[in-house]
Simulated assay, not measured.
Amino acid sequence: MTKKPLDLFLPSKAPSHRQKRVAQEIRFCLSTIFLRNEWPVRFDENGDYLKPPALITITDVTLSADLKQATVWVMPLGGEFQSETKLFLESVGGYLRKQISSHLQLRGVPTLKFDIDPSFGKMAQIDKVLKTLSDKSEE
């Protein structure tokens, strides 16, 4: 009997029903805040008012098994200002966490980590390859 190699890139278990429910609630709370443009008043080192560089789409929220860390996958509208958007969200992460705690009744609100969703870039690459293949087949 041969052993299969361990695939370290796949999660060991599928997310539980509770993880999915809490992730959806966090996504709903954050999208409501983003939609209403309810940002705290913050200033940068030059004294300029900090605001999000673009409209932000929340594509997914994933939670750790113990519900203590949440990764929020975001994409700015048009795919521009990705690094600025991530920096802005990290700077207002405490405010967003406090807003989530006021809307959800959890024992502990997860720590928020923001990442840019890479799936949009991958979809664009796949679309480009398929387009070149269809152009070659028409010739």
Rank of each mutant, 00 (worst) to 15 (best):
M75R: 07
F120C: 00
G79Y: 06
P53F: 09
Q69H: 11
P53T: 13
I100D: 15
P11F: 02
S101G: 08
Q125M: 10
F120K: 04
T32I: 04
L106T: 13
S12R: 07
L104M: 08
L6P: 05
L87R: 13
M1V: 09
D48N: 09
K86D: 03
E80D: 07
F81S: 06
F88K: 13
L87P: 00
S16D: 06
P110H: 05
I116F: 10
I56V: 12
T62Q: 15
S137A: 14
P15N: 10
D7M: 03
E84C: 08
S31L: 10
L10S: 11
Q105H: 10
H103C: 01
E38C: 13
H103E: 00
I26C: 08
Q19G: 03
L55G: 14
L6W: 09
I33Y: 05
D127H: 09
Q125Y: 03
T32C: 09
K51W: 05
D127I: 02
R18I: 10
H103M: 04
D115E: 06
Y49K: 15
F9L: 03
C29R: 13
L55Y: 10
P53S: 08
I56G: 02
K68Q: 14
Q82V: 12
K68I: 01
R97S: 12
P40E: 10
K122N: 13
L6Y: 14
S16N: 08
A70N: 05
F34S: 09
E80M: 02
L130Q: 10
A124Y: 07
